[in-house]
């Protein structure tokens, strides 16, 4: 059944803990409520959420948790495309994962599909058949390049000019 219960979430092993890369967000996220889709629940369709989601049941379709963490528990079975801030996969997932933050795949997981992410961590023993593409900050690079390159070119030109100091001074 659907549950909003912090105690149940906290009773799971440490592998379900949210990423702690951002101290401020982890502090606030640990206080967030998490919805648990229980083992006996099957969902067919689109799930949109503005809070973290733990899936122990089965889900077919798509899932959108733009600023939140999706966790597929060991008993979870997901055939869906997922867009989320972070994803932790401990169960079975077949689909595409588009993640702004980090994808974690634990040793008991089976993942088949495509992953687009900035960071990925895979435990030994996980079955992974995937296409992995790294999300790059191309926009930032494009903005930086025009300002940096001409400056470097000016420096190089100056260095290449003949320097009288090289000739021995008598």
């Amino acid at each position: 059944m659907l549950k909003k219960n912090r105690n149940e979430f906290e009773s799971y092993p440490n592998q379900y803990e949210l990423p702690t890369n951002n101290a401020t967000s982890s502090d606030s996220s640990s206080q967030k409520e998490k919805t648990v889709i229980g083992e006996l629940i099957s969902i067919d369709g689109t799930v949109r959420a503005k809070e973290d989601l733990i899936i122990q049941g089965s889900l077919k379709g798509s899932m959108e948790l733009e600023k939140n963490h999706a966790i597929i528990g060991p008993k979870g079975n997901v055939e869906a495309d997922i867009a989320a801030e972070n994803i932790t996969i401990c169960g079975k997932m077949n689909g595409n994962a588009s993640v702004k933050g980090k994808v974690e795949i634990t040793h008991e997981a089976e993942f088949v599909g495509q992953i687009k992410t900035k960071r990925i961590a895979i435990e030994d023993g996980a079955y992974v058949k995937a296409t992995i593409e790294m999300v790059r900050d191309d926009d930032k690079r494009d903005k930086q390049q025009p300002t940096k390159r001409p400056m470097e070119a000016v420096v190089v030109n100056k260095k290449n000019e003949p320097t009288p100091a090289k000739t021995p001074v008598s």
Binding site: I120, I122, V128, K129, A130, T131, I132, E133
Partner: peptide, 26 residues
């Protein structure tokens, strides 16, 4: 072809468009 290593994926990915992983060892 594996065994899958995230260190290897993270090493390769800046050099190519995409890394396809299929773990034959498992």
């Amino acid at each position: 072809m594996g065994p899958v290593s995230d260190q290897r994926i993270n090493f390769l990915i800046p050099h190519v468009k995409s890394v396809f992983v299929c773990d034959l060892f498992l």
